[in-house]
Design a protein around this nucleic acid. Sequence first.
DNA 1: TTATTTACGGATAACTATTATCCTTAACGA
DNA 2: TCGTTAAGGATAATAGTTATCCGTAAATAA
Lengths: 149, 149
Amino acid sequence: MNENVSPDERLRQMIARLKESDNRVTPQRYAVLKVLAHSFEHPSAEDIHAQLLDNFPTMSLATVYKTLALLKQQGEVLELEFSDLCNRYDGNKPYPHPHVICTGCGAIVDPSFQDFAEISQKMMDETGFKIVAHRFDFYGLCPDCQNSE
Amino acid sequence: MNENVSPDERLRQMIARLKESDNRVTPQRYAVLKVLAHSFEHPSAEDIHAQLLDNFPTMSLATVYKTLALLKQQGEVLELEFSDLCNRYDGNKPYPHPHVICTGCGAIVDPSFQDFAEISQKMMDETGFKIVAHRFDFYGLCPDCQNSE
DNA sequence: TTATTTACGGATAACTATTATCCTTAACGA
DNA sequence: TCGTTAAGGATAATAGTTATCCGTAAATAA
Ligand SMILES: [Mn+2]
Ligand SMILES: [Mn+2]
Ligand SMILES: [Zn+2]
Ligand SMILES: [Zn+2]
């Protein structure tokens, strides 16, 4: 599932598939993809926008959202939706996988244990649902936030 | 953890604990609690409001939201937050547990398998987080929506 | 029962992340 | 280089939820 790919290789992949599907690769899009490929802390749209303002002083936040929507549709990014907070994005693992979320500082990390196929199968057998995606969030305090209490 | 309690017993419990914490039990609150205790389909705030308009023609949606906020704070209801949809509420199992969600009709059901203590422990060991809550959502199509395709 | 206090209900404004709109601009194939 | 058209930027609109404000009713005591 495309794991363990370097950020630059990941960037290349996304660019190639965008072109293949007849989407233009503009400097703005390239910049957003680059940030996503190099980010492992699940940035928000505003995080991405803020990182780009140095090199693109006129970059609109709407452009970031539009690019994220395109990548979502292409299956190149996983959107982590939150009702009370802003959404976060994972451009390196665009498939469903568990997350460990700190309610103190907002950090989101990917644990290495990711095998939920068995448990999904159990849910399908039990409920008759045809399950196609999942969302596993573990909420708590990261080591840093535990210390500063 | 207070499982397998009848709706009326569940209602009694919630009322008793509200009084114990010096909260008034108004007709409006009683009505909202009653709907919650008797609902197993995870109603939204508007679902609850709609059910109450017959008996309480002047009931405000804000009152429903306020009551839900109170119950949340009291730990009497589990709020399932969605970014793109309206939030849903479980007044019978106010503790974290998995949900199976139909992307076709919006149905939300509680599967019987609920033992995630072991997996939570694994996440704690691995990441160093102190995990206090979780969110397990399985997305797919319910049997009805599978047939009508 | 009545008076007093204060939390609660109802109506509505405000909030905010995200999306839609609209016009201008620039990417890219011919 | 030109022409077509998708994409960018600015900003208005959206919608579920929350905050605000005031009149009302629930609880408690006299
Ligand atoms: Mn991730
Ligand atoms: Mn439930
Ligand atoms: Zn933290
Ligand atoms: Zn369904």
